[in-house]
Amino acid sequence: MPTHSAGVADVRSPIHLAPNAAKTFHDLSSLALERDDADRWLAEGPRADDLRHAARQVCALAFSGDHPDARRDVHHVLHRLYDLHLARPVPGMTRNQESVELLRLRKQIEQAWQAWEHNRIGDVPENLTPDAIGGAIKAMWRQHAGHNHPVFEFMRTEADRAQIIKYFTTDYALNMRFYDLIVLSLLGIDEDVRMEVAGNFWDEMGQGNAARTHVRLYRDLLDYLGIEDNPAAFVDALGWEGLGGYNLLLYFALNRREYFRSIGALAITELSDPDQYAKLIEGCRRVGIGTDRPSVLDYYSEHVEVDALHGDGWIDNVIVPVLRRYPDQARAVLEGAAMRLNTSKDYWDWQLAEMRLLGKSAPDAVATL
């Protein structure tokens, strides 16, 4: 089973990027997304072909050439493509949710990216019974290099206030989108697993208390810290590592064939949060965040309490019943868990590096985007 987040070591030939391929990929994808009808705009001249050729080269550089800037560019475009399906409904929205060309671009990116992700899964147990899956997921989690990641011990014992605030700004995107992920995980599922997933949704909704929804609790924390709620800026500040973890969960949720990997990935999310967030809360109190108003940390303290139950509940009441119905999907569940572990470690490695960099460059500064 995987114990690291790096890809399988190999020797690759250098990838030669055609002149302006990265710029072509960025410009054409951005302009198409901004048009009311991307398909009509891309059909003019060679734009559609140019975009496909540029995307192929940039994806090769990102996932075969191990080029972090290219990987970030690809993940940022993929994030925008996924957002077409999750954007808040407002007047004047584009028609691009149904765009054939943008769907083709999305599939082109997903194919290259998923090949890379699968290449670093490593070995997973074979032929597990449904009753053995919980132990296998927990063993995979505990043996992974991301388990007890040092970023959380750093925040508990060393990080200053600005560095911890930096963590909150980078953690924004997925925290604010988790409601949608739970909603998507409810679609089309079997009746015997609905109650567990609905319970997760009800907790996200503050159990009916508008002031206690998880989105509202996170916004309360941002307000307390004087951080402007600016989703676009928070996403733009992420490296490929943060975007990759975010995109993985959306990829699973938006592709019905990935359902079994999705429930494995969500199990890891529920299992890993409590211990990590307990360390974060301790670090916050050490630097004075929430000491005058403890309720501003309720987003994280609630996850410490609730996710301790959700982890086992998700395994026992979602994964096990599903695998009793489809026992041949145990491997897919474990693959989803492994992929979530790898992308989480990528993200935490990046967060720790960003916080340490902030401490070196401006030890007394207030964290900004």
Rank of each mutant, 00 (worst) to 15 (best):
L86I: 13
P89W: 10
P89V: 14
V90M: 13
P91D: 04
G92Y: 11
M93E: 13
N96M: 07
Q97W: 10
S99D: 01
S99K: 03
S99I: 06
E101H: 11
L102C: 02
R106S: 09
K107V: 00
K107C: 02
Q108K: 05
E110D: 12
Q111Y: 01
A112D: 08
W113V: 02
Q114R: 03
A115G: 07
R120W: 03
R120E: 00
I121S: 02
V124I: 15
V124F: 04
P125Q: 05
P125A: 15
N127I: 00
N127H: 09
A132E: 10
G135F: 01
W141E: 09
R142S: 12
R142Q: 14
H144V: 01
A145Y: 07
A145P: 03
N148F: 05
V151R: 12
E153K: 13
F154C: 11
M155L: 07
M155S: 11
T157F: 05
E158P: 05
E158Q: 15
R161E: 11
I164F: 07
I165W: 04
K166V: 03
Y167P: 09
T169N: 06
N175Y: 09
N175Q: 14
R177A: 15
R177E: 15
F178H: 14
L181R: 06
V183K: 08
S185T: 04
L186N: 02
L186S: 08
L187T: 05
G188L: 06
I189R: 15
D190F: 11
